[in-house]
Structure formats: structure tokens, C-alpha cells
């Protein structure tokens, strides 16, 4: 079975079933935004939502993660990696799935990161395809992440009365196989799917003023472009853009002694290239001074460096950085200004 169909009236039943199989996380409303949370009551899961405050990254690269358990006297280190239970991420947008693919590439590049791999191994991803824009901040069409491109176990598409489920892995198939109310998708279902996808083409239009090749080129030429001065002048260095990014993975390592002062834990904690001390060495030299250079670095880590290194853009088009920026720095405007040689709107 490659495509299955689930009637909407059976969605909650299926969510209960998923909940019985593994820990289930889904988007949930929080005030006027959304967050991924463990599903207690299946009614709370939102299938139509603006990207969550922080991406589901927190489940496979947690904000604060134990690396090591240590004792000073006698010197001892304990296995840093705990056993995790199986978990399912439900209703993940295709942009955030692209984010997971980026993180995979970065953490699987040797030397591999065992903590990351360990969590990832327990994870099942059930995506949902967006049929219209979440809001005006997204640039997923330019990044071509508005359509499913692998990296998931199951993918849901809302075709009206039903969800079409694309089965993309054995892990995924196990969650729909032998479920009485999930049937193989028929020819009629597939026809509707085609129609829905066709309609989508008229809704999603490239947000950048040119294609990605041109974007890549603009970053090649634009290292000293004045746009970085503009962006740097406006940036407050609050760090929001990096904290909410699905492909930012910089971290700091800190030791936390317990009150015995003889044993404790070594953690890694999310860190940001926008912070003042990020590239400072003990002698005092700061190797990336100034907000203009730090912002430029952030953009290059999305649109240039990873393309050279992994042949992959590390921008997923989710729009979170623009949404969360205190100073209204907008990614699409910045990239377009870099390409057009133009100035930013409210610079």
C-alpha cells in the first residue's frame, strides 16, 4: 500500500490509536500562537496552524540536553545517553520536515553525534501538507519546501472529506496497516489529490524575486553588500531568529554540579551566533564583532555555507525568523534586497 485514505470522522479514533502506540506530540494552541506539546486529549491537536513558536527540533535536539554524568573524586563518567521511548510527531509541516532533513545532514556528518542519532531513531514523523499559506512570512515556495519531499514516515493531505496518507516508510506503514477504518486510496481519491495539488500551484508563488541559483550567486557576490549594514543597524541581538530556526544547531556546553560539589551533569544548551560572546576567546579577542557581521553570518549559514558543504539550503521557508524578529527584519526582504541591490523598506 502506497497511499491510504482516512475519513475525517475517524481522525480522532486514529489519534487515540497512535497515542496507544507511542508518545504523541502535536501542535496545540497557546494563546494566539501554536506549540508542539504532548497530546493528552486528541481534540487539542491542531491540523491547521501557523508554524509553532519553536520547531519540533526540541524533541530531537532539546534546548538543554545531558551529555555526560560525571564524578570528580573518584574520576568517573557515566553513559551520557539515556534510553528514550518511541515518539510520534504528528501534523508536522513540510517546512519543518525539511528542517529535520537539514539537521540529519549536519549531525550525521562525521564525527557523528550519538545523542542526536539516538533520539532520531525513536522518532516517527507524520506530516501534513499545507494547501494554502500559513501567513505572509513564509517563503516555502522559493525553498520548494511547500510540497512533501521525503523525510517523513506518513504524509497527510486534506482532500475534503478525507485525508490521503502517503506511506513513505515501513515504520509509517505499521501505523496504518490493520487499522480497519484506514483503506487503500482508490482511483477517485487519487484524482482528487491531483486536483488539490494542481490548485495549490496557483496559490504558492516564489517569494524571492528570483530563483535559488540566483540567490546562491547573490550570496557569493554580496559579502560586503550594504544590506548587512542595514540589517545590523536594526538588529537588537535578542537572539529570537536563531532560537526559533529549525536548522540552527549551535550550542554551548556547561557543567552543573549538584550540591555535593563532587558530581554533576554536563549539558549542552542552545546557543546563538547573535550573542555577544559567541565567538570570543579567553584572551578577549572577538572574532565576529558587530551585529551586521553576526546577522550576515546567520544568513550565510542558511543560503551559502551549507550549499557549499552539503548541497542543501538550510532555510526551510517556515518564516519563523521574520515572525519572531523584534525589529521586523524580514528574510524575504533581506534576500531580495541582496539580489536587487535595493534598500530595505524601513531601513
Amino acid at each position: 500500500m502506497k497511499y491510504a485514505a482516512l475519513k475525517k470522522e475517524n481522525l480522532n479514533k486514529w489519534l487515540e490509536y497512535l497515542k496507544s502506540k507511542a508518545r504523541l506530540y502535536a501542535p496545540k494552541k497557546k494563546e494566539n500562537q501554536f506549540v508542539f506539546r504532548p497530546v493528552k486529549n486528541v481534540d487539542e491537536a491542531c491540523l491547521k496552524y501557523i508554524p509553532t513558536v519553536i520547531p519540533p527540533k526540541k524533541y530531537y535536539f532539546p534546548q538543554k540536553e545531558k551529555l555526560l554524568k560525571f564524578t570528580v573524586e573518584p574520576f568517573h563518567t557515566a553513559k551520557a545517553i539515556a534510553e528514550f521511548e518511541e515518539f510520534i510527531l504528528f501534523a508536522v509541516h513540510t517546512c519543518d520536515i525539511a528542517g529535520i532533513q537539514c539537521m540529519d545532514v549536519a549531525f550525521k556528518e562525521g564525527p557523528e553525534d550519538p545523542n542526536y542519532l539516538n533520539r532520531k531513531e525513536k522518532m516517527t514523523i507524520i506530516g501534513i501538507e499545507c494547501l494554502e499559506y500559513c501567513d505572509t512570512h513564509a517563503n516555502c515556495a522559493s525553498m520548494a519546501t511547500h510540497v512533501p519531499r521525503g523525510g517523513y514516515d506518513l504524509m497527510l493531505v486534506d482532500i475534503g472529506e478525507k485525508f490521503i496518507i502517503h506511506i513513505n516508510s515501513e515504520k509509517g506503514e505499521r501505523l496504518v496497516r490493520n487499522v480497519s477504518y484506514i483503506k487503500e486510496a482508490g482511483a477517485e481519491d487519487m484524482a482528487v489529490l491531483c486536483f488539490v495539488r494542481e490548485k495549490k500551484k496557483n496559490i504558492f508563488k516564489e517569494e524571492f524575486s528570483a530563483g535559488l541559483d540566483r540567490v546562491y550567486q547573490a550570496f557569493g557576490d554580496g559579502f560586503k553588500h550594504k544590506v548587512w549594514q542595514d540589517v545590523g543597524r536594526r538588529c537588537v541581538a535578542c537572539g529570537n531568529c536563531t532560537m526559533v530556526c529549525p536548522t540552527c544547531y549551535c550550542f554551548d556546553v556547561v557543567d552543573d554540579m549538584d550540591l555535593s560539589l563532587n558530581s554533576g551533569l554536563r549539558y549542552r544548551i542552545w546557543n546563538s551566533c547573535q550573542m555577544d560572546d559567541f565567538a570570543k576567546v579567553a584572551g578577549g579577542e572577538d572574532f565576529r564583532k558587530g551585529r551586521e557581521n553576526r546577522q550576515r553570518h546567520r544568513y550565510y549559514r542558511k543560503f551559502r555555507y551549507p550549499v557549499d558543504k552539503f548541497n542543501r539550503y538550510f532555510c526551510t521557508g517556515c518564516g519563523r525568523c521574520s515572525r519572531a524578529c523584534m525589529a521586523g527584519i524580514n528574510l524575504v526582504e533581506t534576500v531580495n534586497a541582496l539580489m536587487d541591490g535595493g534598500k530595505l523598506n524601513n531601513a
Binding site: D113, D252, V281, F287, Y300, D308
Partner: peptide
């Protein structure tokens, strides 16, 4: 070259010079 480093594994990001 000297840089700030936290992991040594090409992950934590502190030591980056451009890419």
C-alpha cells in the same frame, strides 16, 4: 588559528570562520 570551541566535532558553531 585560535577560536572559541565547545565540542571539537564541527557542531557547536563557535569556531566557524565563514563556512
Amino acid at each position: 588559528l585560535e577560536r572559541r570551541m565547545r565540542c571539537g566535532l564541527g557542531k557547536c558553531g563557535h569556531c566557524q570562520i565563514e563556512g
